[in-house]
Amino acid sequence: DYEVGESVTVMDGPFATLPATISEVNAEQQKLKVLVSIFGRETPVELTFGQVSKI
């Protein structure tokens, strides 16, 4: 299970290999909103559970 505030690594898509912090969890739809730090700015990205891995 994923929790808000948890650190994960993006495994898929254009942000693969980047660390991210979970900002929202939708367990019903198996989706997460995460904040990816790009060029010093936090960018919100919506991903599925399968696109991230716990650190």
Rank of each mutant, 00 (worst) to 15 (best):
D1L: 14
D1F: 14
D1G: 14
D1Y: 14
D1V: 13
D1W: 14
Y2G: 02
Y2S: 00
Y2W: 14
Y2R: 02
E3W: 11
E3Y: 14
E3Q: 14
E3D: 08
E3I: 13
E3A: 13
V4P: 08
V4E: 06
V4F: 04
G5S: 03
G5Y: 04
G5P: 01
G5N: 05
E6T: 07
E6M: 13
E6S: 07
E6N: 07
E6P: 00
E6V: 05
S7C: 11
S7A: 13
S7Q: 14
S7Y: 12
V8E: 01
V8N: 01
V8C: 05
V8F: 02
V8M: 02
V8W: 02
T9A: 06
T9W: 15
T9I: 15
V10R: 00
V10F: 03
M11W: 05
M11R: 09
M11N: 10
M11P: 02
M11K: 09
M11Q: 07
M11G: 04
D12C: 10
D12Q: 10
D12T: 12
D12G: 07
G13I: 02
P14Q: 08
P14W: 06
P14A: 08
P14V: 08
P14C: 09
F15C: 06
F15N: 03
A16I: 09
A16S: 08
A16C: 08
A16V: 08
T17M: 12
T17N: 14
T17F: 13
L18K: 08
L18E: 05
L18P: 01
L18Q: 08
L18M: 13
P19G: 09
P19Y: 13
P19N: 12
P19W: 11
P19D: 08
P19V: 15
P19S: 13
A20T: 03
T21L: 11
T21N: 05
T21V: 14
T21D: 03
T21G: 02
I22H: 00
I22Y: 00
S23K: 12
S23A: 13
E24D: 08
E24Y: 11
V25H: 02
V25I: 12
V25G: 01
V25L: 06
N26I: 10
N26C: 11
N26V: 07
A27W: 15
A27Q: 12
E28T: 09
Q29M: 11
Q29E: 14
Q29Y: 09
Q30I: 03
Q30T: 06
Q30N: 09
Q30L: 09
Q30R: 13
K31E: 06
K31I: 14
K31G: 05
L32V: 10
L32E: 01
L32M: 08
L32H: 01
K33V: 15
K33Q: 11
K33N: 07
K33G: 05
K33T: 15
V34E: 00
V34Y: 02
V34R: 00
L35E: 05
L35H: 07
V36A: 02
V36G: 01
V36P: 01
S37M: 14
S37E: 10
S37F: 14
S37Q: 13
I38K: 06
I38P: 04
I38E: 07
I38N: 07
I38L: 11
F39R: 10
F39N: 15
F39E: 14
F39T: 07
F39C: 14
F39L: 14
F39I: 07
F39A: 14
F39V: 08
G40T: 03
G40M: 05
G40L: 04
R41S: 12
R41A: 11
R41D: 08
E42C: 12
E42P: 13
E42L: 13
E42K: 09
T43H: 15
T43K: 06
T43M: 10
T43Y: 15
P44F: 15
P44W: 15
V45S: 04
V45E: 04
V45T: 07
V45W: 07
V45Q: 04
V45A: 08
E46N: 07
E46R: 05
E46P: 04
E46W: 09
E46I: 09
L47R: 00
L47Q: 01
L47I: 06
T48V: 07
T48I: 06
T48G: 11
F49T: 04
F49M: 05
F49E: 02
F49A: 02
G50K: 12
Q51R: 03
Q51T: 04
V52A: 05
V52K: 00
V52H: 01
V52I: 07
V52F: 02
S53N: 09
S53Y: 08
S53L: 10
K54G: 05
K54C: 04
K54N: 06
K54P: 07
K54F: 06
I55S: 10
I55V: 11
I55A: 11
I55L: 12
I55K: 10
